[in-house]
Nucleic acid binder design. Structure first.
Length: 293
DNA sequence: AAAGCACCCAACCGCAGAGTC
DNA sequence: TGACTCTGCGGTTGGGTGCTT
């Protein structure tokens, strides 16, 4: 596998984006849609590498980005999802509408890992919730070699929150695979009539992992005691009814995402059950197996 | 007031999977 | 089949900002 030349190319800008660059990128994507990142900078008149453009769009400029103020329920979900999935930020982000993997990663590194370390509720190396927090915290020795800077007293801005709900999960008898929903940018596609459309198929997930998951999508929508996470068979109602393109003008981003704690809780429960089920009973698909690594 | 420290987060880097030729 | 490109992911860095001393 070769590596595409990227920012090492001479003459390309690096570092913080200027408002002008943001405007150029946004304008281009609104006109032509996402994708073709390699050629996008040139076409958009940007002196950036495609990778940088993609990152800027995905993590900052996308219209459905929800910035700042991680809600307590999101905070809680991140912690528990991390205990199940480890550092699979994109998967975790996929369950937190409007949040990017980068944001969650940053939030984890700056807030949550610290918090859990102090609370001793998770082994930050194995990502498993600890049964005996005190012992584990003691054995850890308080070293975190990955951090380039030592924190004093665990950080002055560290916000402690009362959790204590890790063992609240009621026993479930049925297991359902989580819906492989990846909340992505609204894929704006130009149509012949010069109107923009939302490509629901692309938006449902296009990463390599989601592609693996896709065969599960249908099966995972079986009616469950856990509760149907979304509406109809669309998961979060992200698709139009006929799974065809819909006019972007009809879309309001916030209305397509689960925002209440109940849905986030359901999502977590799906993962939780998946990871706790008896492997012998089921033939796990590749997605499920990947979660169990 | 200013120097040093700690924190936050946008952005970069390198790797790897998938697709294409 | 292998080389190459495109894309996405996770780890890491470094500059800006605010707090402490």
């Amino acid at each position: 596998m070769g590596r595409a030349p990227c920012c090492s190319k001479v003459g390309l800008h690096k570092g913080p984006w200027t408002p002008k660059e943001d405007a150029l990128l946004t304008k281009y994507i609104q006109a032509h849609g996402e994708g073709q990142w390699k050629s996008l900078p040139k076409k958009a008149g940007l002196l950036r590498c495609g990778k940088s453009c993609r990152l800027r769009w995905m993590n900052y400029l996308r219209p459905d980005i929800k910035r700042g103020n991680i809600a307590p329920e999101e905070d809680d979900l991140i912690i528990r999802m991390h205990s199940l999935l480890g550092n699979r930020w994109s998967l975790i982000a996929g369950r937190l509408p409007g949040r990017t993997d980068n944001e969650i990663k940053n939030y984890w590194n700056t807030h949550l890992s610290k918090k859990l370390k102090i609370q001793g509720t998770e082994d930050t190396d194995t990502h498993k919730m600890l049964e005996n927090p005190q012992e584990e915290a003691a054995s850890d020795g308080g070293n975190n070699n990955k951090k380039k800077k030592k924190k004093k007293n665990g950080g002055k801005k560290n916000k402690q929150k009362n959790k204590g709900k890790e063992n609240d999960e009621p026993p479930k008898t049925q297991v359902y695979l989580p819906k492989p929903i990846r909340v992505k940018a609204m894929y704006l596609q130009r149509t012949d009539s010069n109107t923009f459309t939302f490509d629901s198929n692309s938006a449902s997930g296009s990463t390599s992992q989601e592609k693996e998951e896709s065969p599960v999508t249908k099966e995972s929508n079986v009616v469950s005691e856990v509760g149907n996470v979304g509406e109809e068979s669309d998961g979060f109602g992200f698709f139009s009814e006929d799974h065809d393109l819909v006019n972007v003008s009809d879309i309001e981003c916030h209305s397509y995402f689960p925002t209440d704690h109940g849905n986030l809780q359901q999502l977590y429960e799906e993962y939780f059950q998946l990871l706790n089920m008896d492997h012998g009973q089921f033939e796990l698909n590749s997605f499920a197996e990947s979660l169990l690594d």
